[in-house]
Design a binder for these strands. Structure first.
Length: 159
DNA sequence: GCCAACGTTGGC
DNA sequence: GCCAACGTTGGC
């Protein structure tokens, strides 16, 4: 089983939206590197961190599971969609999406600022300067490290 | 709101 | 194929 990190702007789609809806189509990815990961590498059952981007305090906010492997992103065919891409057609779709399912929301966001301080995460594309990749792999070791930190944070909190 | 970094487009 | 111009991402 592989692990991933997927960014979303919470104003557009947040972990709370996913918790409410239980599942979602991860549509609107319009970057080839991210597309290749989604289309070629993600498998049903994989786990992914949900990351809130483009806000005051960006960070990892929870976990989701890849529920359905890649299939064409229909929003690319829809002229009324903000994700419309006239160069994509149903015969040879350019963009793909997966379906994701809610797993958990962390009690506390794990801030990007903290992630950047961790030597173990130095190789993660997320903390590299200028990185804009919205879907990226997370190693098993990095996943365990971040999950352990999330659990520590939860134990520290009062009930 | 600013702006650095990056990806894409299109003229040549 | 090069590369300047442009648009977008996303932290701050």
């Amino acid at each position: 089983m592989a692990h991933w990190l997927m960014k979303s702007e919470p104003d557009v789609f947040s972990i709370d939206d996913l918790e409410r809806d239980k599942t979602a189509s991860w549509e609107g990815v319009r970057n080839y590197q991210a597309r290749n990961i989604i289309r070629d590498e993600m498998k049903a059952g994989d786990l992914a961190f949900f990351y809130h981007s483009n806000i005051g305090a960006p960070g990892i906010v929870g976990v989701m599971r890849i529920q359905k492997e890649a299939y064409p992103d229909d929003t690319a065919f829809d002229p009324n969609s903000e994700y419309h891409d006239p160069k994509s057609d149903r015969e040879s779709p350019r963009w793909y999406q997966v379906d994701v399912a809610f797993e958990e929301k962390f009690k506390e966001t794990i801030p990007l600022a903290w992630l950047k301080e961790q030597p173990l995460l130095a190789d993660c594309p997320l903390v590299k300067r200028g990185n804009r990749l919205s879907v990226m792999p997370v190693t098993r070791k990095q996943w365990r490290f971040i999950m352990q930190h999330a659990r520590r944070g939860e134990r520290r909190l009062p009930q």
